[in-house]
Write a protein that binds this DNA or RNA. Sequence first.
DNA 1: TAGCTGACGCAAA
DNA 2: ATTTGCGCCAGCT
Length: 104
Amino acid sequence: MKKKLDSFSKPQKGVPTIAPSVFAKRVYAVVAKIPKGKTMTYKQVAEKAGNPAAARAVGTLMSHNYDPKIPCHRVVRSDGKIGNYNRGGPAKKFELLMMEGYRV
DNA sequence: TAGCTGACGCAAA
DNA sequence: ATTTGCGCCAGCT
């Protein structure tokens, strides 16, 4: 009994892993640093990542990122809206934010 | 290499 | 206050 996890241990090519770009790593680091109960806008994350105008790029990276270490649900839009979510849609994101203490 | 798309942002109407 | 258009960068075909 030592197999089974084989397919789970190795990197699956079917996973939409994003390119290991420098900017991407910056974004991941910033998002991972977001404190619980707080929310950052894509613009803020982009700015911290080093590109204040790469808000779109941040969203693109998040959409391709499925890493649980990246609480992308804490990243919201500057309009005050929640934005999108690749793990169940904006509804799930809304629940998570409320669960963590997000208030309008 | 060039073009299109996209979890955004902001300005103008 | 809401809707439309344009610009932005990164990634994919």
